Amino acid sequence: MSQAAVFLDRDGTLNVDYGYVGEISRFQFIEGVIEACLQLQQLDYLLVLVTNQSGIARGYFSEAQFHTLNDWMTQVLAQHGVRLAATYYCPHHPEGTGVYRQHCHCRKPQPGLLLTAQQQLTVDLARSYLVGDTLADLQAATAAGIGTKVLVRSGHRITPQAVAEANWVLDTLAALPDRIRSG
């Protein structure tokens, strides 16, 4: 049986986006997101992280550093009772270096991360949400068939195109549980 999920972008959605956040010392949760994640989990949604990490391709930090930060973030969330079902990330970028310099199917706006999660976690995409701060996040959700696309103002400057692609526009992820409950 498939379950609904809330797919979460990372930088600008869960944490303050200082640009290429690859170290724990530069990671800061956006106010209210941990509590929102706990409430979403209590509403019986799987929480799935889907994040472009072109800082790897650009040489700003390594995959090992990404995993160290992700493990730390996951532990902090767990200390508050929040469990991420999985993390999916894209280390590629066309302007990157070495093996990471490529066009791929996982970098948002492509739907690869979402479709992989759907297959591995048996997610009902039509009943799911994606929360992100860029047009690319929302385009990936559209391409994957995600039911509700949520644009948050807590990250990048939102564009009219992103607003047009979104079903809902919220200040931060912290507002999502109430918005879901209100229909």
Score class of each variant (00 low, 15 high):
residue 163 V to N: 04
residue 131 V to I: 11
residue 117 A to R: 01
residue 92 H to Y: 12
residue 70 N to M: 13
residue 90 C to N: 09
residue 120 Q to M: 03
residue 43 L to T: 13
residue 6 V to R: 00
residue 118 Q to R: 04
residue 180 I to Q: 05
residue 156 H to W: 13
residue 124 D to H: 09
residue 167 N to K: 03
residue 146 I to A: 03
residue 23 E to Q: 13
residue 170 L to C: 09
residue 33 V to F: 02
residue 130 L to A: 07
residue 61 F to D: 04
residue 161 Q to A: 14
residue 139 Q to V: 11
residue 114 L to R: 00
residue 169 V to F: 02
residue 137 D to Y: 05
residue 115 L to E: 00
residue 140 A to Y: 02
residue 76 V to S: 07
residue 173 L to C: 03
residue 167 N to I: 07
residue 83 R to G: 12
residue 175 A to C: 11
residue 107 R to P: 11
residue 166 A to G: 03
residue 181 R to L: 14
residue 77 L to W: 02
residue 21 V to G: 00
residue 31 E to T: 15
residue 181 R to S: 11
residue 45 Y to F: 15
residue 99 V to G: 12
residue 119 Q to V: 07
residue 177 P to N: 07
residue 24 I to N: 04
residue 76 V to I: 13
residue 76 V to R: 13
residue 165 E to V: 08
residue 74 T to P: 04
residue 125 L to K: 01
residue 156 H to S: 14
residue 121 L to F: 04
residue 162 A to I: 08
residue 24 I to K: 12
residue 8 L to P: 11
residue 25 S to M: 04
residue 53 Q to E: 09
residue 132 G to T: 03
residue 25 S to D: 13
residue 8 L to A: 06
residue 55 G to I: 02
residue 180 I to V: 15
residue 60 Y to G: 10
residue 174 A to D: 04
residue 22 G to W: 02
residue 87 T to M: 06
residue 170 L to G: 04
residue 174 A to W: 05
residue 124 D to P: 05
residue 37 C to T: 03
residue 151 L to A: 07
residue 90 C to Y: 08
residue 40 L to P: 00
residue 23 E to H: 13
residue 25 S to E: 14
residue 53 Q to T: 10
residue 41 Q to P: 08
residue 154 S to Y: 03
residue 99 V to K: 14
residue 72 W to S: 04
residue 9 D to A: 08
residue 17 D to M: 00
residue 61 F to C: 10
residue 145 G to V: 07
residue 26 R to K: 14
residue 129 Y to I: 09
residue 81 G to P: 00
residue 111 P to S: 02
residue 102 Q to R: 14
residue 8 L to I: 09
